[in-house]
Write a protein that binds this DNA or RNA. Structure first.
Length: 112
DNA sequence: AAGCTGACTATGG
DNA sequence: GCCATAGCCAGCT
């Protein structure tokens, strides 16, 4: 389902700088609540669609950087996030709840 | 074509 | 709060 991918990428690109969101929430925003795994897979393949997709802003529901291993240097994910003002402790985002961005709450996307 | 995989999540012990 | 299990769905072998 290519449309699903495109929608995922569009949302990910809308994630404001210094904010993050979760796979499951993106899936939910697309109306496919159970497709959280597919969102992750989409991130894996994101570079084939658009290399500029900020996949590092997408983490799991715990704010854990589960996808860091899939980045070029795995450490780049944390570095990018910290660069955007996000604190990371033990591969986990500090104050995740505050940094979390709801894909359905548009309007915040002007920041970037 | 059938089965496996996974950057997930929710639930129960 | 940590571990095991079970749904989930598109892509890959």
């Amino acid at each position: 389902m290519n449309d699903f991918y495109l929608s995922v990428f569009e949302i990910v690109k809308r994630i404001p700088k210094g904010r993050v969101t979760s796979y499951g929430y993106i899936a939910k925003a697309l109306g496919s609540g159970g497709s959280s795994r597919v969102v992750g897979y989409a991130m894996n393949k994101s570079h084939t669609f658009d290399p500029s997709i900020p996949a590092h802003r997408v983490v799991n529901r715990n704010g854990l950087l589960t996808g860091k291993a899939h980045f070029n240097p795995p450490s780049i994910m944390q570095e990018l996030l910290e660069k955007e003002g996000i604190e990371i402790k033990e591969d986990q985002i500090v104050n995740f709840k505050e940094k979390f961005w709801d894909p359905m709450e548009l309007g915040d996307n002007l920041i970037d």
